[in-house]
Every structure is written in C-alpha cells, then in structure tokens.
C-alpha cells in the first residue's frame, strides 16, 4: 500500500490515465488498420469485380455484334465488336495486374484461353461467307465458346465477391475491436470514479471529520483522546500533532 496521500492520489490518477491512454492507443491502432483494410478491400476485390462486370458487358456487346454480322450488317457489327474487344482486353489487363487472391491467377488464365478461342471464331470473315445467316453454326460453335468465356469471367467475379464478403465481415469485427476499448475505458473510468470517491471519503474525509470532532469537543479535563486513524500517512501525522498540541495546552494550563 502507498503511504503518502499525495502518492496515493497520484497513483490512482496514473492508473486512470494509463487505462485511457491504452484504450485510446488501441482504438487508434484498430481504426488505422480498418482504414488500411478498406483500401485493400477496394484494391483487392472491388476493382476486379468492376473489371469482371465490364468484361461481361463487353462479351454481351460482342455477341450482339456477331448477330449483326450474321444478318449481313458488316460495318455496324464490326464497329460494335471492335469497341467491345478493346474494352474486354483493357479490363482483362487490369484484372491481370491486380492478382491478390488465391486461385485468381488460374481464373484469369482460363479467361485468356477461352477468350482467345472465342475471338478466333469471329475474327475470320462472316459476311459473304457460308456462315452468314447460319444460325446452326452460331448456336453449336460460337455460342458455346461465348458461354465458356462468360462462365470463366463469372467465376473470377464470384471469387472476388466471396472475398469481399469475407473481408467486410472481418471489417465489422475490426470496427467492433476499435470501439470496444473506448466503451470498456468509459465503464472502467466510471467504476474508478465511484471507487476513488469512496476511498477519498473513507480514508481522507472521514478522518478529517473525526479530527475536527475531537478538536471541537476539546476539554482540558479529558486527556484520553484517541482518534485511531490507522494508517501511517499525513493524516496520521496530523493526528499525532494535534494530540501533542492538546497535551502541550493541557500542561500549560496545569502550570
């Protein structure tokens, strides 16, 4: 037990400050981590999901372009296909540069492979060949390849969506971990305050009250003063000094 009143109060406040500093530091640490997690969430998953969506859209546009070619509308069809192809390749390149998840590389390799095969089918002339208006060729050969590529892109998107969900769940827990130290610190400080108030009353206010009572009831005929403060601190010293003083006054009066 700490002996001096000053040290007692200082130690009490030091503990109080420690808990606040620790809670604050841990909250800041967790919030900083949370910020990093949000950025990595966007970088790792969200961008690839957006690229996958662009690729799917491009594939659909390419499919429409091919149907136009089958109808013999060469110029309009080629224009749509070329724009969609460029958009697809651009998104694929972006996804390739943002491989962050396990198996993501394998998914991109599959997209590459199936898209190359798909592209090889429509790259060759369609208008003014036996393919023009050939719906059987479209369904049996081209559409199969189109679905295969689309499925590969969907798989990439699903992988990133799953990880996005997982990461956001982690983020929820992280935000909880950031807030909780503050809540616990608030509750602890309330408990601290109640206890501090109790201890100050019990060990400082009550003894001072007792001393005051003794001085108030001072009677030169009664030498039997006992306050029994119990602790070896400044109040105990004050008690001893008051008793000495009473003793001195009594002796002087006797003389």
């Amino acid at each position: 037990m700490v002996k001096k009143i000053k040290n007692k109060i200082m130690a009490g406040f030091a503990l109080l400050i420690t808990i606040l500093i620790v809670a604050g530091s841990l909250s800041i640490y967790e919030f900083t981590n949370m910020g990093k997690s949000v950025i990595s969430l966007i970088d790792d998953n969200y961008k690839t999901i957006a690229d996958s969506k662009t690729m799917l859209e491009a594939l659909e546009r390419e499919d429409s372009g091919i149907l136009l070619l089958l109808l013999g509308r060469w110029e309009q069809g080629r224009e749509i296909i070329q724009a969609a192809d460029s958009s697809f390749l651009k998104s694929l390149a972006q996804a390739e540069n943002n491989i962050t998840e396990e198996n993501e590389e394998e998914h991109i390799r599959r997209i590459h492979e199936s898209y190359t095969n798909y592209k090889a089918l429509w790259k060759r002339p369609i208008v003014d060949t036996e393919k023009e208006g050939n719906i059987v060729w479209y369904f049996e050969t081209l559409h199969e390849s189109f679905l295969k590529t689309k499925s590969a892109v969907n798989d990439l998107m699903e992988l990133n969506q799953k990880n996005l969900y997982h990461e956001s769940t982690q983020l929820k827990n992280q935000s909880r971990r950031a807030i909780m130290p503050a809540i616990v610190a608030i509750v602890s400080v309330i408990i601290f305050s109640i206890l501090l108030n109790f201890f100050i009353t019990r060990y400082f206010v009550t003894p001072i009250g007792k001393l005051t009572e003794v001085i108030k009831t001072y009677n030169p005929d009664n030498r039997n003063y006992s306050m029994d403060m119990g602790f070896n601190d400044e109040i105990k010293q004050l008690e001893e000094e008051i008793l000495n003083l009473i003793d001195k006054i009594t002796r002087r009066q006797e003389k």
Binding site: M1, V2, K8, A11, L15, E30, M180, P181, S188, L195
Partner: peptide, 20 residues
C-alpha cells in the same frame, strides 16, 4: 488486442484498491 486490453484492464482495476 482484445486479450491485451482485457489483461491491462484487469491489472489496473485490480491494483487500484491496493493503493488505498
């Protein structure tokens, strides 16, 4: 971090009465 903070809270709240 949850375990560290819980431990620190325990130590601080546990030590506090011993001062007085």
């Amino acid at each position: 971090i949850p375990l560290l903070f819980s431990a620190i809270t325990c130590f601080i709240l546990g030590m506090f009465p011993m001062i007085f």
